[in-house]
């Protein structure tokens, strides 16, 4: 597996983490005893997840000629 393939795996897992973290913070923010900063960071995390997905697409386009092996 080349660095290109590993990077794609890594970015996929990172965006999944950011997505999960965002949902976790939003649920925590809107439940009893939740804080405003949870909502803020939850939304930031979701924005981060979307940014990572777009970066992954850009990276794939940029390195389309490099092997996955």
């Amino acid at each position: 597996m080349s660095l290109k393939a590993f990077h794609i795996v890594f970015i996929t897992l990172s965006s999944a983490l950011a997505l999960g973290c965002g949902v976790w913070l939003l649920v925590s923010g809107f439940s009893a005893g939740g804080m405003k900063k949870d909502v803020f960071f939850g939304i930031s995390s979701l924005v981060g997840a979307v940014a990572l997905i777009f970066y992954g697409r850009y990276f794939l386009k940029k390195l389309k000629n490099v092997s996955y092996l």
Partner: peptide
């Protein structure tokens, strides 16, 4: 590339450590 593969592995470990220990 080889150093990058090691670095990605280290980063990947953190991606698992963070939710397990912090969240």
């Amino acid at each position: 590339e080889v150093s990058g593969l090691f670095w990605h592995f280290v980063d990947l470990i953190w991606i698992f450590l963070f939710p397990v220990l912090y969240l």
